[in-house]
């Protein structure tokens, strides 16, 4: 392979990593993997890795959105309301009469918000870091996911940053 083509592959791998900034960007690594996996070993691994990372991110986003909806519309109103859970259909005078269980569930809301505000930027920045490393010529691997995919593809583990550098 000539060098221009290698550099082009690197640029496209960087774009597939950076496509997590775009809505429905996970379609980009899917298409790259489907069409380019025969042509370039590098693109095959990097596109599959970007695809796995972005699909995982999408799954976590759905779970967080579900937890958010359930906690904000169901559990927190229940725990704050004055419903008497021991006798359905009746009300007590004091709030928080549901006891400890609804309040524990409402803690989910706080954890989910923390995940959203901390994990979101970390997810974005790790993707951009991966794009930058790939553009620099490293064979970047995401912390745990990368080696997992490498073993699945029968690539040797642990050579991530060693020989890919310029």
């Amino acid at each position: 392979m000539n060098e221009r083509q290698e550099r082009e592959d690197r640029l496209v791998a960087g774009i597939s990593h950076a496509s997590l900034m775009v809505p429905l960007g996970f379609l980009v690594p899917i298409i790259i993997w489907l069409t380019q996996r025969e042509r370039s070993e590098f693109l095959r691994f990097q596109a599959l890795q970007a695809l796995a990372y972005q699909l995982l991110g999408l799954l976590v986003k759905f779970v967080i959105a579900g937890c958010y909806m359930v906690s904000i519309f169901l559990i927190i109103p229940l725990s704050l309301s004055a419903v008497d859970f021991s006798r359905p259909g009746t009300f007590t005078d004091e709030p928080f009469s549901g006891g400890i269980v609804p309040m524990l569930f409402s803690a989910i809301f706080i954890v989910v918000m923390a995940l959203f505000f901390i994990g979101g930027p970390v997810y974005l920045i790790l993707g951009i870091v991966a794009a930058a490393r790939v553009l620099k010529g490293h064979d970047y691997r995401y912390p745990i996911l990368g080696n997992w995919i490498a073993t699945w593809l029968d690539l040797p583990p642990g050579q991530a940053e060693a020989d890919g550098a310029e």
């Binding site: 774009i15 775009v22 429905l24 960007g25 980009v28 298409i31 069409t35 380019q36």
Partner: peptide, 13 residues
């Protein structure tokens, strides 16, 4: 708006 990336990727491929 966001899907344009797919179109230009198809052109590149």
């Amino acid at each position: 708006y966001g899907f344009g990336l797919l179109a230009s990727l198809a052109v590149w491929i």
